[in-house]
Amino acid sequence: MNALRLYGRYVGASLRVQAQYPAATLLLTTGHLAATAIEILGVFALFHRFGQVKGWSFGEVALFYGLINITFSIADMLTRGFDVFGTDFVRTGAFDRVLLRPRSATLQLIGYDIRLSRVGRILQGLVVVVLATNLVPIHWNPAAVAIAVWAVAGGVALFAGILVLQATISFWTIESLEAVNVLTYGGVQAAQYPLNIYADWFRRVLTFGVPLACVAYYPVLAILKRPDPLGAPDWILPLTPLAGFAFLALSFLAWRAGMARYASTGS
């Protein structure tokens, strides 16, 4: 059985487990929907008071907000195994069991737990994107849709990369390092606003360090057909989500080093 079909089996098993606790799953899903719905109300209140922020309207920011939240929720749904790797696998010794099976550790970890409740937040993100479409003229032609999907894919890779790095650190710390949440939850917060409202050094971090701008800000400019107020050339905008995949690839290099360490220390 190939890896993809096995992943399908893992997804099926995970869904069956959650189906055993339907009330809990439903409550979590609505919870995720409600919590993030309140957040967008806050953003709306801000724009209602000030009208525009640095030349951006509420509708445009809503597009940033919706896309990055869809992106993060998908990543969060798929990479639970890496998220809880330190506490649930390294500390308990359950990673030994992963290593005892003739399949890649990565496949087993992404198949560990597919969190259905995150669908709530994905739905909320979609609703906000629809809302944005009604507020600003976004022409969803095939090219725009393709860029949006491509940006979300790059963003999922980026967030997955961050979580893989977090998991890699747990080979050394034995615990899941909560400090990494600054990059995940904090990253979502930062990426839901346009880049040019931030200070110069922070823009650099978001472009070249943890390239959140490359999976949110730049591709959204391409969808809105707005030139970059910071001067990035138009042709590069739709290419930027590649940075997310590069980040993920580098994270896996670090992960390999962590695996080698585990083999020599066993936690």
Binding site: M1, R5, L6, R9, A13, R16, V17, Q20, R97, P102
Partner: peptide
Amino acid sequence: QRSQLWWDLPVLDGFDLLADIYR
């Protein structure tokens, strides 16, 4: 002291999954 099986899954489902894992 450690389980190979899936805590929340029926025994048989765990076996099915292992058969897939081990091809």
